[in-house]
């Protein structure tokens, strides 16, 4: 595996391979000194064309625990504005000598383009509305850590499916592992032909809650209000937010997950945030573990890596 760009490239066996590696990384992270020399001498560049402190910090922490050097590149303005093409930017970073590039970009497909140009490994840290494979992998790890089997598991993803890379990648990952996925949103927040993603569709959260094993809430972007996709955040919360009443309907054995950061009072009521079924901090912890596994697998497929 030179690059990690999408979940689709992995399939069930590829996901499983990363989960096995992540188990080893979890053991590393549990040590008093959670650091191994596996990627010593390797350089990982984080190229973030879109701000994301959480994802960047998670990747950089993962790289440092494997003893890789981290090179940090931020470019919030567009290539067009700088008069430089995406390729120019990538070639500049590569010329500094990097072994892997973690790319976060506003534009769908940018990591695919970069992977065509770069000799270094490319890891997709989230592109546009397209894909966010490491998020999906950490979510799979979190569900798996609870001892749940994906085969036949009922997972509901609630929120702005249309503009969500997390939704696309998570549907792909859960479906690959045999889970039943339902996406729950008003029609304006569903992309056209959403059924071709492989998920069932519902506009009624209350109707699906009782049969839900994993309730996955997406962040509702406030800018969607400007586009008349929903009338107001209040109306969205009443119809699609996890309220106390809905939390009571949700089975006791269910998990509540969210990619963060959470909008209190929008996708989740403040009084539900501390519900024992919420796994948001586990997701953050597992994010480092899974990204260690991805970095290790991607970089050890090239020569020079040693086992952790």
């Amino acid at each position: 595996m030179k690059d990690l760009l999408t979940i689709d490239q992995l399939g069930a066996s590829g996901i499983d391979e990363i989960m096995q590696a992540a188990d080893a990384m979890a053991e590393v992270c549990a040590r008093p000194v959670p650091k191994v020399p596996a990627l010593k001498g390797r350089t990982v560049a984080s190229m973030f064309f879109e701000d994301s402190t959480r994802t960047r910090t998670s990747f950089e922490t993962a790289a440092r625990r494997l003893s890789a050097d981290v090179l940090n590149f931020s470019a919030s303005s567009s290539s067009v504005n700088k008069g430089e093409s995406l390729r120019d930017t990538v070639e500049t970073i590569e010329a500094m000598g990097v072994d892997a590039i973690v790319v976060r970009h506003r534009s769908s497909g940018a990591p695919q383009q970069i992977a065509r140009w770069a000799k270094a490994s490319v890891i997709n840290g989230g592109d546009g509305w397209h894909a966010h494979p490491t998020q999906s992998l950490l979510d799979v790890y979190t569900i798996r850590e609870e001892g749940r089997r994906f085969d036949g598991l009922n997972i509901a993803i609630v929120g702005d499916i249309s503009h969500s890379r997390v939704a696309r990648s998570n549907v792909a990952a859960y479906r690959a592992l045999g889970a039943n996925v339902t996406v729950v949103a008003p029609p304006t927040l569903l992309p056209p032909h959403v059924e071709t993603l492989g998920a069932s569709v519902s506009h009624d959260l209350d109707a699906v809650l009782a049969d839900t094993d994993v309730l996955y809430l997406l962040r509702m972007q406030r800018e969607r209000m400007d586009q008349a996709l929903v009338p107001s955040l209040g109306e969205y919360h009443r119809a699609f937010g996890l309220t106390l009443d809905r939390a009571r309907t949700l089975p006791a054995s269910s998990l509540i997950m969210h990619p963060g950061p959470m909008n209190r009072g929008v996708e989740i009521s403040p009084e539900v945030i501390d519900d024992p079924r919420v796994r948001v901090l586990n997701q953050v912890t597992n994010g480092v573990i899974v990204r260690m596994a991805v970095l290790y697998l991607v970089l050890s497929s090239a020569a020079g890596g040693s086992a952790p």
């Binding site: 769908s108 497909g109 592109d127 546009g128 509305w129 397209h130 894909a131 890379r165 696309r168 992309p191 056209p192 032909h193 959403v194 071709t196 993603l197």
Partner: peptide, 15 residues
């Protein structure tokens, strides 16, 4: 184009 491919690729489509 707005269709299956725009949905999969996460690119806004024109109907």
């Amino acid at each position: 184009h707005e269709g299956e491919w725009s949905t999969h690729l996460g690119i806004r489509g024109v109907p």
